[in-house]
Design a protein around this nucleic acid. Structure first.
Lengths: 143, 143
DNA sequence: TATCCTCTTGATACAGCTTATCAATTTCAA
DNA sequence: TTGAAATTGATAAGCTGTATCAAGAGGATA
């Protein structure tokens, strides 16, 4: 659990730097958050209802946004919802999606990743994460 | 303006295929849409208010979604809003998005495109369109 | 070109997700 | 322990996008 401790430390530092406080709720939410790759506020709300039935949805939104500011989480808008990704689980999840049958094929390509870094650097960015989706027709759907 | 004519034809075909009708509003919205790379329903609403003060926001949403189904547009969720991208300008414009300030930098990279094709081919896919977004911090937000 | 069935529109109510508000509570430095 | 400042929980409000529905427009047919 050294990873969890490390993240907790990142949070502590961020809080100290901004005159914020470490509350029971923030600890609880961080612990649960670190166990998962990505969550929505709603899913955490239900998960944590067992541990603390009075934990409010607004607190979860506030706290997840706080994690984003602290660099522990990253928000991504997926459809109508916001997904909060655990930065430490940065995996390569690229997708080929068939517009005919909906099949999703996962792939990774180091060369593409390298070129992405190159583009980012050229524009003064440091990449935290990315999203690459290729839409098309699979072999079967073309016939 | 042969491109505009071509897109209009794509729309006409889609409408015919699905027993839909070509209305004054759909022509108006398509014409305005083709002049831009990406729009939101709200921006089009204001742009078109001059040409047709009675054009409803719901009609714009419906029509932009129709364009997506016809393959002329592609919807993407940026922040809390939905952006509708002009597909004919697509393939040339991927996005670098700053998670700090929201700045969006467009870029194109033929080599990445080529590698995407390669991945698709290897998996038996033929790409119709794609989405590539790099999320990170811009130079200013890192300080 | 007149007819008629169907699709579309505009206005607005509604729904889903997220943020703002505020009194009560908790944190933590002194 | 105390007290100023931050946080919480409950909920109202805000924002984007969709559903509803009566009135209007398209277009195939004759």
């Amino acid at each position: 659990m050294s990873k969890a401790l490390k993240e907790m430390d990142v949070l502590r530092q961020h809080l100290a730097k901004h005159q914020l406080k470490l509350t029971r709720q923030r600890e609880l939410i961080l612990t649960a958050f670190l166990r998962q790759e990505h969550v929505t506020a709603e899913t955490m709300y239900h998960q944590l209802a067992k541990k603390d039935p009075h934990l409010g949805l607004a607190t979860i939104y506030r706290t997840l946004n706080l994690f984003c500011e602290a660099g522990i989480a990253q928000a991504r808008h997926f459809g109508t919802q916001t997904q909060y990704d655990n930065i430490s689980h940065k995996g390569h999840h690229d997708h080929l999606i068939c517009t005919g049958c909906g099949t999703i094929v996962e792939f990774e390509n180091c060369e593409i990743e390298r070129l992405q870094e190159e583009v980012a650097t050229r524009n003064g960015f440091v990449i935290q994460t990315h999203r690459l989706e290729l839409y098309g027709l699979c072999a079967r759907c073309r016939h």
